[in-house]
Design a protein around this nucleic acid. Sequence first.
DNA 1: TATCAAGAAATGTACGTACAACTTTGTTGA
DNA 2: TCAACAAAGTTGTACGTACATTTCTTGATA
Lengths: 357, 357
Amino acid sequence: MEMPKYMTLVTWIKNKIEMGELKYGEKLYSENELGSMFGISRQTVRQAINILVQDKYLESRQGSGTYIIFNASAKREPTMTIGVATTYVGAYIFPQIIRGIENVLTTAGYSMQLTFTHNKVQNESRVLRSMLEKGVDGMIIEPTQSGLPNPNFKIYEEIQRQRIPVLFINSTYPGIKIPHVSMNDRMAGQIAAQHLINAGHKRIAGIFKSDDHQGHLRYAGYLDALLKAGYEIHDENVLWYSTEDIPDLTQFPEIILRRVKDCTALICYNDEIAMQMVDIMKKNGIAVPDDLSLVSFDNSDLAELCEIPLTSVAHPMNVLGKVAAENLLHLIQDHTFKATVDFEPTIVTRKSVRTLA
Amino acid sequence: MEMPKYMTLVTWIKNKIEMGELKYGEKLYSENELGSMFGISRQTVRQAINILVQDKYLESRQGSGTYIIFNASAKREPTMTIGVATTYVGAYIFPQIIRGIENVLTTAGYSMQLTFTHNKVQNESRVLRSMLEKGVDGMIIEPTQSGLPNPNFKIYEEIQRQRIPVLFINSTYPGIKIPHVSMNDRMAGQIAAQHLINAGHKRIAGIFKSDDHQGHLRYAGYLDALLKAGYEIHDENVLWYSTEDIPDLTQFPEIILRRVKDCTALICYNDEIAMQMVDIMKKNGIAVPDDLSLVSFDNSDLAELCEIPLTSVAHPMNVLGKVAAENLLHLIQDHTFKATVDFEPTIVTRKSVRTLA
DNA sequence: TATCAAGAAATGTACGTACAACTTTGTTGA
DNA sequence: TCAACAAAGTTGTACGTACATTTCTTGATA
């Protein structure tokens, strides 16, 4: 005999549950019914049901019947662990965000299971599966490659099916219904450009990240401001880069110099890029801010410590982490909680922008 | 009927095991034997045995018999989770260390449960207890307040009793037998002082952290070098500070200025402090390095980004994290593995030291 | 002495019966 | 209308039998 009769019944019932044909709380067929349905004895049916009760798929109530319970989610006892996955950690704004999250979680008695995706979708996939397997009470995820279509959406479906609360930070995947806590990046882009326009700049170049949704939004905001001011858009002044190119950006200064030609200002995707730009400009005899004004994003330590302190649109950083963690805890309590927050950006003025006459 | 027959058999067997009358690996009576011993049918015996198999007391092997195995508590199954507790995360060298650890753990299929103690022993206590409760396969701990006697040693005893591998990073508690992976701080202190001595400096001040064992060691190395060179030690040139004072150090410049009086050089506990010193000196008309040479520790980003780039003794950072994680995984495999590593420090020369004529 | 095969012994699967304990539901009676 | 009761339905306990599958032992054979 290949598979014991009770085993075929086990898999049959499991399938029914996982396909959603038998839902949470519903009553299963009675032992006698199943017996006659499958042409097996009641004892054999009981054997199958016992296994599923052990695996927390079913629950038997004497005198009443056998009921379906969610195997992993609804009946799972809390692990008091929250899975957190950010793209990077090395430095920059990430440690601040993580600190914000950790503070809240620890205070609430949770612990944080932290992983980094290095902005690779395969890693995101692996991380999410691992969290599902370990059984976390909730997840805070910084989406990877959010500018591109997301291949992990099947996993997100499974997570939602298991009713595990998830919150995105910094970005989202367009078209996925998961709450997010981030800076309003479009408004941030708009503010950055507007700041330069107010300072009298008319021809403004931009460097944006192509594989992040954030990059797209900041670019959109940049366009908003230019269009509102009635200035022309020049495609040749916009440089898109993807994550893999970052280390090389300083290696090819001519590409950048070509973009900023005729421009009096440049908007950089983040402080890190802006700092590299300061370096490139210095080496090529372009003075910042006298010849070229710079505005960047995130207002990290780098903006302060840069040779020419950078005017930068402030990222909430540890406040964002704090709010994300708090909202996730709310979500765990109440699955209908509206957890999405868009932080209003503010700009911090330093010395990298020159006001034109 | 008060208690079902199969239940009385369950408790009887459980008792036999817990009383030590049936030991690990031994064979239980056969189902038929138990049946006749208790005057019950084989089916009923099987019901009892099934329960004990589920509870990990017994293990049935077809054709052979039923055997006693360690019950759940003694035979804890791996959680594939490593608890990591560092003091801070906000920035500085910590993200690098954490990245190093995370990389190794993730590659090996483990996940990292990360917490921060903020260098408070109460937090360390809470964190360790939580890890014990959650059940981690190993721990990487950065000791808090390692300069002071450790009040958590009871917990460390319990951890060792449960044979959970632990590894300290960056520091240790003197007198506790737990392996550690850190920089050789005494040698680092010695190298820092020697570098200044070689540059012709004779009167060298120092700022050290009093509540870290690291601080004590770096101070000891500083003394080593001065004594070896035959220079006098001046207590009034050494400033000790504790963690709580850090934000205030720039608030009381006169305390620092008093210490560096008559000195041509200053050794700072870390880059963060050194950077504050640069600030204070600038505000008080003391030029670095012309009037005062500075050497610091850790060789973090700050050393590079500082107004006056700092000569600093290099901290291995992410290599340290990597090695710590690797050694902990070794320890999990083999509890006798010698996991202690002292990294040999090297000094990175920048512009904060002036060579005296 | 070593090898192999048969048989004994153990657990695994499957069916059957009987009754106990409990829950649900519908009916009866005050 | 409500409470008590009865009946039906469901799972829980317990016994029995039969045969399958696997492991271990033993004895015969080369």
